[in-house]
Amino acid sequence: MPLPVRDVVGILADNLRLRGSVLPIPARRATAWARDLGIPRGGETVLYTGQMYQLIPYIERLVRLEQRLGDSPLARFSGVARRANRLVNGVAVVARPGASERAEYDRIPANVARLLQKSGVAFGYLYEDDLYSGALAHDLGADEAVAAHARRVAGVLRKRGVREVITLDPHTTTMLRTVYPKLVEGYDVRVRSYLEVLAERGLPVGVPLSGTVTIHDSCVYARYEGIVDEPRRLLASAGLTVAEPENAGQWTWCCGGPAESLFPATAAALAGKRVEQLRAVAPDCVTMCPICLVNLRKAANGTMRLRDISDHLLDAVTERGASAAHVGGPTP
């Protein structure tokens, strides 16, 4: 049984208002991926993560807890939990993923930074000022909290002299590119996904890959932002053959992830159906959204290989592609 929607949304909105993120995590955790990459601090063009990939291990811990609570008598006390969360950051208490869980998703922003570096793109990073975009709270209709947060993020970008941001997930892309202009007067930051940036510049392929992958388009990239061709062009230039599944491109099928915070069972059932569609085409699947990746991986349960697109692209531009049996091998 799901927890009361009003209290769950309330906790997320309270967190955004009080702590700057629906799931507040320490800045040292959110920025750990950038260690040793030598990315300059700030600049006119920045790589903006919106903390999305970094948040996934914390979201997973919370969803597991939510599932357990939803089936227990404690669910009746969700209103008390909301009041307590206003005083103490509940995420810090109940969601503590291990180092290996964090590393799995921290790897992806690091991939993207390396790809941009190898493509000759000049960019900086805002480190502790790389704030969450407010995407989940926006989806849930917590509009006042999101509007205030958008003004805060826009103020940081203005103060740091940022004129262009390069995003790495669909949800942050659509928030910063399409939603913020409606919420923040005078907001004129140019926003592009790293997939658009790399597709425009061309991928500096070192060792071409080989093999066939299927592709799971993000609903937000495909239907909100019109990003459909870019990932295909990049995968083709990396040397991979893209096999289209049922429901691809503009007609892609949702991974179920958006339902996960409130209705985990619904999300799991939908992800299972999508995995069947993908597995029917190829045992290797490329994703481009952290929420899709984690939901489909759980549903696949090891029966097919799911990797973020940045993993494949980095294989193609570095020597690691020469030795990696990253497609066509046994499923993990």
């Binding site: 609903c219 239907r223 949702c254 409130l262």
Partner: peptide, 8 residues
Amino acid sequence: FSCLLCRA
């Protein structure tokens, strides 16, 4: 609240 906002 269960709508996915997927725009299908």
